[in-house]
Simulated assay, not measured.
Amino acid sequence: MLTIASLWIPFTIVAALGQVARNAMQRSLTKPLGTWGATNIRFLFGFPFSVLFLALAVLLTGDRVPWPAAAFWPWLVTGALSQIVATGLMLLAMNDRSFVVTTAYLKTEAIQTAIFGFIFLGDHLTWLKVLAIVIATVGVVITALRPGGEKSFAELRPTVLGLGAAAVFAISAVSFRGAIIAVPSVSFVTAASYTLMWSLLVQTLILSVYLLLRAPDVLRSILRLWRPSMLAGFTGAFASQFWFLAFALTAAANVRTLALIEVLFAQAVAYYSFKQPIAPREVFGIVLIVIGVALLIAA
């Protein structure tokens, strides 16, 4: 039977599934809106749903929502800004190098999250959990690689950009957890919902002002495409809600490691929906992911 402390496991699985759906919806809007326009959709149209999630949390728990404490803001702003910066670094890396190699770099996020979580939040990780994180990460990198792609790792610029993006994504995850645990005297559900609402508001303001100054036509296009954007915004807010619920209950490194099962979902879709065969190398990588995730949950 699941205890409250172990609810982070189903929360993370739901979040990973929601993220796959959100990415698919954002991808369909990238052509008419551009990369940053499609990115802003998850914030701009996700924000109203985050307000709704917070209202439901308060209604169900009876919590009184406090004004943000001073310690809350540095964590929140760092998380919101670093998530945007990490997205930019990721896009630059993908422009310099293949999507596959960049993805392999990005999946080092779990290891870097463990390091930053220990340094900044004192998150305790046993040796078994560290081993699980390393095994699962290696499995994802092996699965992501393609024959002949290994030589791409020798080039300095894409390596720095890819690993840098993973590092900033890791800082974002740790910062959001720091913001959540800085919300005083409320349940973990309200703390997570509260942090999500403020995060999406800050990110909406930053990216909307940027687009207003640099590409006002994109903002007008976003408003014209409000119906598909609303669905993408809801899916993004839904996934983020469950990420934040998981961050409220356990170290960010645990969440980001279990999130690597997203690779398994993608492989399943590729095999069953598109009839794409799975190479022996991919099978080996998947086995390592499963072993790593199993060790993490057992730990």
Rank of each mutant, 00 (worst) to 15 (best):
I4E: 14
P10W: 10
F11L: 13
A15L: 06
M25C: 12
S28W: 09
L29I: 06
P32T: 08
L33K: 05
L33Q: 04
G34P: 02
G37Q: 04
N40A: 15
N40D: 15
N40V: 07
F43I: 07
L44K: 05
F49G: 00
S50E: 05
L52H: 08
A57F: 13
V58E: 10
L60Q: 14
D63N: 13
P68F: 06
A70Q: 14
L76W: 03
T78D: 03
G79S: 03
A80D: 02
I84L: 14
T87R: 00
M90D: 00
A93Q: 00
V100E: 08
T103C: 04
E109H: 06
Q112P: 06
F120G: 13
L121R: 10
D123E: 13
W127N: 12
K129D: 04
A132G: 04
A132M: 01
A136L: 05
A136F: 01
V138H: 06
G139F: 02
V141W: 00
R146V: 10
K151R: 15
F153N: 00
T159M: 15
T159E: 08
A167H: 02
A167C: 10
A170H: 03
A173G: 12
A173F: 10
V174I: 14
S175K: 06
V186R: 06
S187D: 12
S187R: 13
S187L: 11
T190A: 05
T190E: 04
L196H: 07
W198Y: 15
W198T: 06
S199A: 12
S199N: 14
S199F: 13
Q203N: 09
T204F: 11
L205Y: 08
V209N: 10
L213H: 10
D217Y: 06
S221V: 06
L225K: 06
R227K: 15
L231V: 13
T235N: 04
F238E: 00
F238C: 00
Q241L: 14
A253Q: 05
L264A: 08
F265Q: 04
A266V: 12
S273Q: 11
P277E: 12
G292K: 03
